[in-house]
Amino acid sequence: MGFFADFKKFLLKGDIVALATAVIIGGAFNKIVGSLVADVIMPIIGLFMGGQNVNNLFFTLDGSEHATLEAAKEANAAILTYGNFLQAIIDFIIIGFVIYLLLKGYEKTKKKEEAAPAAPKGPTQEELLIEIRDELKKKNM
């Protein structure tokens, strides 16, 4: 088998297709959570922090004073933007919580599948043949 045939076989495995689907959905989900945090949660947190934009929270490492984050960046000051870090932590917590909920739901479905009783077994082929033989004996007597 050639390289491309092996590669095609690899790509068309069910696990690879499922993984690719999960990555695409995960990327879209990340955008939704990012928007939720940036556009809904962070403004509410900023409101409780005196009405400031949390993304603009920073301090300079060189001790210089700047009124805004943009001014500090413009001055090429060494800055630490802890507001962005706070937003990333909130993103992570929300995504982790949603994954936790999905996995709990998945575990429940697995437990139901395991707990489901097995289908009742019918007689084996040998038992059926013995039964037929016995019925034929009764008729011939």
Rank of each mutant, 00 (worst) to 15 (best):
K111F: 04
F3W: 15
T21G: 13
F3G: 08
V54R: 02
T109I: 09
L19S: 11
D15E: 13
P43L: 06
L128G: 07
L12W: 14
A77K: 07
L128S: 09
K137M: 10
A88N: 08
T124Q: 04
I44K: 12
F58A: 02
L61P: 01
A20C: 10
M1N: 15
K138G: 04
E65M: 09
A119E: 05
I44R: 09
G105T: 09
I25Q: 00
K104A: 12
G105H: 11
N55S: 13
E135F: 15
A116H: 07
V37R: 03
F97S: 12
Q87L: 07
D62S: 02
D15R: 15
L103V: 06
A71R: 03
G122K: 11
E131M: 09
K139R: 07
L12M: 13
L61K: 14
A77P: 03
Q125L: 11
Y100S: 06
V54F: 01
L69D: 04
L57F: 15
V33A: 06
F48I: 12
L57T: 05
E74V: 06
N55F: 15
K8Y: 00
Q52A: 13
K110V: 06
N55G: 15
F4L: 12
P120L: 06
Q125E: 09
Y82E: 02
A118N: 12
F10Y: 13
F48D: 00
T124S: 15
G122F: 05
A77D: 01
I132M: 11
V37Y: 00
G46F: 05
K112N: 12
K73L: 12
K108G: 04
L101F: 10
D134V: 06
S35T: 14
Q125V: 09
P43R: 08
I89L: 12
G2S: 12
E65I: 05
P123K: 13
A5T: 12
A88M: 05
Y100E: 00
S64I: 00
E70K: 15
I93T: 02
E126Y: 13
L19C: 11
A67F: 08
K108I: 10
G51I: 05
E114W: 11
I79W: 05
I79A: 03
V98A: 08
T124G: 10
N140A: 15
A5R: 14
I99G: 02
N56Q: 11
F10G: 04
K8G: 03
K139C: 00
I89Y: 02
F92D: 12
A20H: 02
I132R: 14
I95H: 04
A116I: 03
P117E: 08
P43G: 05
D39L: 13
T68F: 03
V17W: 03
F48T: 06
L57P: 04
K111M: 09
